[in-house]
Amino acid sequence: MAEDRDDRPEGARPRALVVDDEREVADAYALRLRELYDVETAYGGDAALEAIDEETFDVVLLDRHMPRTSGDDVLATLEESDFPGRVVMVTAIDPGFDVIDMPFDDYLCKPVDREDLRAAIDQQCEILGHEMMGEYFGIEAKRRVIVAELPESERADHEEYRTIERRAKERRRRAQRLLDDPAELLDSFDGIDRERN
């Protein structure tokens, strides 16, 4: 999974992956979204997992019924690997009781209006943005405590510290990219005095 590899700049747009084994369908969805998001397409379940393994995606639009590796299979794999993104099922399959145990974040039945599609993605981006911001705060609080207490010379050689440092930057970037107004949250976080008085 491409965790912590999202080094795109703060101003980059949210990134979506459209997964559908029908090339025409995947391309049509990408067409609808390309004005607002960075969009990639995967024409099958295996291709989707490969793409997600190599790059960071904020939202995955996932068709269910695909040959070989189905959307349900992809969803299960993402769940197992703790995928740091949101998954929206976009499918022609009418949902049944089986959806209760499926770990998706939203479910859209085709055909989907462009506005509904964009609204659903925006909503997931907002949610993910808050998740990322929350994770950032948790990681950053640790980092700041360590910075306040331990000298640079010790921190530089500490592998776990370098990991949370990298992860904090990634979470902050993603949160800023996904939230409409992240500044207020960041200012509020920064305004709290965590050092010993």
Binding site: E22, E24, V25, A28, Y29, L31, R32, A92, C109, K110, P111, V112, D113, R114
Partner: peptide, 9 residues
């Protein structure tokens, strides 16, 4: 649904 979706888009 799929071709309808494609046609609309």
């Amino acid at each position: 649904r799929n071709p309808l979706d494609v046609a609309k888009a």
